[in-house]
Amino acid sequence: MAELITYRDAVARAIAQEMRRDERVVFLGEDIAAAGGVFKTTKGLLDEFGPVRVRDTPISEEAIIGGAMGAAMTGMRPIAEIMFSDFLATCWDLVAVEIAKSRYMTAGQVEVPLVIRTANGGGLRFGAQHSQAVENWAMMIPGLKVVAPSNPADLIGLFAAAVRDDDPVMFFEQKSLYPTKGEVPDGEIVDELGKAKIVREGDDITLVALASMVPRAVDAAERLQEERGISAEVVDLRSLVPMDTQTVLRSVTKTTRLATVEENPRLCGWGAEVVSIVSDEAFWDLDAPLTRITTPHVPLPSADALEDVTLPSVDRVVETVAKVVG
């Protein structure tokens, strides 16, 4: 049996699944308990698990992330919410300099098994300080794992894998996906970090996408087939660290062309790393220059028309791919 649920409801289901399984899993963040989350992603958790395990915090991101770290290194499995991923900047020292490096600096004495989940990305007209796609910030830091699901079933399965992982995992939920729906099987769902998925098969070009760019890449692929007779394969990368480069390389070897579809601003986006790897390891299989489709290197504007012209659109993917395939 399967059920059609929203990406939003998948969040609470994923957290509940793990909290039922393991008493060490606790959840803290701003407005997550009594209010059920500002995006209503955590509704019902306080009722089921109580105020000791589901805990509202002050607006103190360093206390939230530092608190989660201290708990993780002493036997707990905390889940910390940072309401908007933009706010990670206020506690980035804890994330990048403390959490990420502790295992290494202590030669493995300290373990920090926690999940930081956060609403990431644009598309909701929030403007430049509540819309950033910052998964590449986390990707640059050795010691962090980085996950960004594109649909409800993946969200639950990857979240479970993240909570059960012994490393710190940055879990980026794309906030414009919250109302989207997807089929979710009954029962416990546990996925695996570091496994990309081919979500649409094709022969002429590989589109590698992440989170909200996955449905856009799929829509673009449908239109490319209908309007231009181009067959695009779409790979949902799902996790940036660990990265399933083998699935990408196999796909590119077959299609001989690659475009990445990235929500982040241009410089140092995750696609640059993908392009670099493909260039190094599949160069002689290629029939076209490697291409990146990204948000231009600008902060995100608020007005509908302006935000729409910056984020990679289905139209832009179609036009760019048509040129690459020729």
């Binding site: 206390a63 608190g67 989660a68 770290m69 201290g70 708990a71 036997g75 300099v97």
Partner: peptide, 16 residues
Amino acid sequence: AHLPIAAGAAWSAQLR
């Protein structure tokens, strides 16, 4: 940086 981390370790001791 370690003050909130220490608070978290104390939270863990309280929980456990």
